[in-house]
Design a protein around this nucleic acid. Structure first.
Lengths: 131, 131
DNA sequence: TTAATAAAAGACAAAAATATCCTTTTATAT
DNA sequence: ATATAAAAGGATATTTTTGTCTTTTATTAA
């Protein structure tokens, strides 16, 4: 998603192969994740010659939080630190309150960080996408 | 570890079965983790009749950070948020700096939270160990 | 219309994490 | 001494995550 977000406006869409190489991720595995992102409308896919993937209009603006939610679910944002099924304000685990602060921090960061933010860093050469 | 830390001073040691029930974790699997904790001297084990596990003197004072490190390794404290092998201040991933803040928060919390802290909450009935 | 290209989908495979089982070792109480 | 209780250790099994392969479907250009 970050890689595709770095593509210049109006750029032709990018094929699976190119994406997999760019982010150093296995092709077939990458394909599966791209399919998920297309199903959730964060990406658009074009079949046939010159086809590939490109970030959708809505996709450009999505938060890191949303991307993680689509790909890995929201357990990272909601699960108990100690793994308890029933852990809540009313029946907290031994680190519930301390951990909540950290999770709120993480959730807040991910909700306010957009693909655009991250892509900008990559484009400017101040951050990197592989190795 | 938290459960064993809640045991009153000088209490007889607790058998595997009792521990597994208390924390609602499979017995054989719990045994493996207890073995690891014994090897790392966070626990002591006593074999034979009336044997079991008890927290060691040093174990009582250890931080949550240390327990996690022993059981799961330190990847949670050191790994890149985007999974890059080489991600550093010099060659950061797209969320390196933002994520570092959160990880420092997590690491700090875990380093300053001791088993005693957590056990106290359980003993006082303000936090819980299962379900 | 057809050949080529590329994604989609489903079945399959490998690796890692989680979990179990069985035998051995050690200690205790009788 | 012996029977018993309990942890240790090794081999094995299951589940989940990660990854691959093959066939199908859609699109474009000649």
């Amino acid at each position: 998603m970050i890689f595709l977000a770095t593509m210049p406006e109006g750029e032709e869409c990018i094929g699976l192969k190119e994406i997999a190489v760019a982010i150093n991720s296995p092709e077939a595995f990458t394909a599966k994740i791209l399919q998920t992102l297309v199903r959730e409308h964060l990406l658009e896919s074009i079949k046939g010659p010159n086809g590939g993937f490109r970030i959708s209009e809505s996709g450009k603006k999505v938060s890191l939080h949303r991307v993680v939610e689509v790909v890995d679910g929201d357990s990272i944002f909601t699960g108990c630190a100690l793994g308890l099924q029933e852990c809540s304000e009313k029946r907290p685990c031994a680190v519930h309150h301390k951990f909540k602060a950290i999770r709120d921090h993480l959730t807040g960061m991910m909700m306010t960080t957009t693909l655009e933010d991250m892509a900008k860093g990559i484009r400017q050469g101040v951050s990197y996408l592989k190795y």
